[in-house]
Write a protein that binds this DNA or RNA. Structure first.
Lengths: 186, 186
DNA sequence: GTGTTCATTGAACAACCGTAGAACGAATCC
DNA sequence: GGATTCGTTCTACGGTTGTTCAATGAACAC
């Protein structure tokens, strides 16, 4: 029982607490959105006092920023439609909490909207370049809208038909859409 | 100038105020979502006192219920894909505030989620029946997800590529998608 | 005209929010 | 050792929120 020394060095303590707070923040923001999550809420989920959250993250806004940082999404290469399907599969398989944080708050919180807009912009640019059509921008935007709609309905609204379906079926049905929009059939 | 008598009968006054409050509520909920909308906010937008809003609507929750009532959407008849495109065109043309109220709040407010779920359920049922495929339910859900994603990106997030595009272009690009999902090409 | 109804206001309450800062105690440094 | 840093908690403040309720004055019934 007391074999291992507790190893509660201050640096460790700090890192652990900060990580626990950040994890709790991500979970809470993803479940409740920006407005309904409170500092006290996050603190109690992390098992610490609310003051500590403020002390480490400065403000609720800053806490959200840190929790909402999206991991750099490397876009697969290859034919656009195929790359998109791979990208979609990743999002359907992982149910990435990080992106749910942003999605859940994006309709009501300005900064979430900004974060999302920025991420979407670079994504759209890269995608547009790969689409051989005059209206590539619009096509890419539609593809992005489709992906967002599917993720929202599946993971946030949990509409049964979509939430229960295997990712493979979803992808198979969406394949012709992506091919058509990515301009590979015309 | 003073030709017409002011006609401020009590019944009229009441109806007018209630209508003005409801309109202000719809606009505010659609712009800010449920949480960030305050009773005082709505009241001041309607040019009345906050107490009056409570007196007429009882609670913020009730006010939201009344503001979020979606108009019965009569589904056009005909080939599914064609009917869907007509339905989509209506939503793209009108920019219906009523549905934005629900959409804006649907990710953070439980009742909005319920209202949306109910409306979506009947919509999905009717749409499933019109799709001749074993996985009609999933197909209908994907179509619904696409429409939601497009409306959200266009009117709520106002992503430029989609917000600026003519409705006709959007519909033209989406037509193959709907045809493929509605099972009319296979 | 007189008494009643009722649309509307203003002030207040309790609860909760984000946030700040003092206080405690254990790890750290010399 | 003692002094000090620092992780952590406690308490409190000012502001906002949904909500209540008494007060006011104009429309109404008779």
């Amino acid at each position: 029982m007391s074999d291992e020394q507790p190893r509660r060095t201050r640096a460790e303590q700090r890192r652990e607490s900060e990580a626990r707070i950040l994890a709790a923040a991500r979970a809470t923001f993803a479940e409740l959105g920006y407005e309904r999550t409170t500092i006290r809420n996050v603190a109690s989920a992390a098992g610490v006092n609310a003051g500590l959250v403020m002390h480490y993250f400065g403000s609720k806004e800053e806490l959200f920023s840190r929790a909402a940082k999206l991991p750099e999404e490397e876009l697969p290469v290859g034919h656009p439609a195929e790359a998109l399907l791979t990208s979609l599969r990743r999002r359907l398989d992982d149910e990435p909490v990080a992106s749910l944080v942003v999605l859940r708050s994006v309709l009501t919180h300005a900064e979430a909207s900004g974060e999302f807009r920025a991420a979407a912009a670079t994504w759209l640019d890269r995608m547009s370049e790969a689409i051989p059509a005059a209206d590539a921008g619009l096509r890419a935007a539609l593809i992005s809208a489709i992906i967002n709609g599917v993720v929202i309905d599946r993971y946030l609204l949990k509409l049964s038909s979509l939430a229960d379906a295997p990712a493979d079926d979803v992808i198979a049905l969406l394949r012709p859409c992506f091919e058509s929009l990515a301009g590979e059939t015309g």
